[in-house]
Design a binder for these strands. Structure first.
Lengths: 217, 217
DNA sequence: TGCAGCTCGGGCAAATTTCCCAAGCCGGAT
DNA sequence: ATCCGGCTTGGGAAATTTGCCCGAGCTGCA
């Protein structure tokens, strides 16, 4: 930690947009204590860059939520549990946030945050603290958080089956007929799945199912 | 034009993310000939800022594409036909690109472009030329070769925008707020889109949007 | 034995969806 | 000029679904 104080905080920037990366780099470098020691433009390269530079903080800016970003987090954390990862994205869905923290992220800030909030989050994460922007805290607070794992782990077999069929495009009646259940039961499952996963929309449910490999599109 | 050569190119930055704006500003300013004279964080403010500063180029970085962005373009162009607008977004769907040019944009570059390509695009646009990044040209080329009527061809601009947001996971209220429509109108669009496309389920709608490249999962 | 969690469904108010309709606007055809 | 058709915007009302509460029958497990 003393070396951090002496040399500042080294940062690995992961973002798939070059100019966005360059912009962030300049913003961070202008802070004085933050130094971007490496960049990566995709989740796959992120771990290699992490290994090579051992940064204090990884700033992961994933415009496309879901598997690739979460995968990168898990990848890095699995092999370097000390890694500090700050997710930085424009998305603010509870599902995503919870998945990110579950995957091992140390912080989560949205792009709507003030630049000062972002750099402060980086400093917090570097100190080993958890950090999140106000809007994220609000989203999580709304969402009566349950200590969950990989989203699908919270679901029972029946729930998963119904989610699969639903995401595949089946109507409630079709699912009920297919599984020999009453429509009411399927509706209840539908609701239950949404509340368990934190999805507030059918569309979010489909995306969730897709990123979990439950259905392909 | 000679004044452009003498004083450089003045730029109005429009983006809803503060830190992104700050990043771009630094990147552009570092070029020497590009000067960010104003910023706006939403489509509504864009025209006011344009009027107040009369920039050579407007760089519109809309994370949420569609009506609000297209609207801003039309707004500015309607009252200042000389305006040069460069759309700068992470989206690369042919529908969006064509709509943007139809609305009066002078250029379209994606965030996957190299920073040098972006600043060159700004310079081209300032000279009154049309500009687009390589990937956009590629997308448009592909699109022009496919006479296949995509499902999207049946949909109007508003419908496409609402479909995109819906498939992205937004609720009806969020879409209504975002586009400044009544919830009722969004509901009607929702229904209309379903009947036009033949989708009987929200999930089918999401899959449709995904296969049309309207949203990625 | 008893608790916990899954599965299955009823009930009911609140919300949404489903259609149908109308009006304004604009572009193109007559 | 005029009309037609399509887009956009929303109201209305019936039908359906959702949100959330509930109980009951299973199972496994402590």
């Amino acid at each position: 930690m003393s070396e951090v104080a002496a040399t500042g905080i080294s940062v690995l920037l992961v973002d798939d947009h070059p100019i966005v990366r360059q912009g962030y780099r300049r913003v961070l470098e202008s802070q004085g204590d933050l130094h971007v020691v490496a960049e990566a433009d995709n989740a796959a390269d992120a771990y290699g860059a992490f290994k090579a530079h051992d940064p204090d903080v990884v700033v992961l800016d994933i415009s496309m939520p879901g598997a690739s970003g979460l995968e990168a987090i898990r990848n890095i954390r699995a092999r370097s549990p000390r890694a500090r990862i700050l997710v930085f994205t424009m998305h603010n869905e509870a599902v995503l946030v919870k998945s990110a923290f579950a995957a091992g992220a140390s912080g989560f800030v949205t792009k709507s945050s003030e630049p000062s909030a972002v750099v402060n989050a980086i400093r917090s994460v570097a100190r080993g603290e958890r950090a999140m922007s106000d809007d994220i805290a609000h989203v999580l607070a709304e969402d009566s958080l349950s200590p969950t794992g990989s989203v699908l782990d919270q679901l029972g077999e029946r729930e998963i089956e119904i989610l699969r069929q639903f995401a595949g495009g089946a109507t409630t009646e079709e699912i009920a007929a297919q599984l020999n259940l009453s429509v009411k039961t399927v509706q209840n499952y539908h609701y239950l799945i949404k509340s368990k996963t934190g999805a507030r929309t059918d569309a979010q449910l489909v995306r969730l199912a897709a990123t979990c490999g439950l259905t392909r599109i």
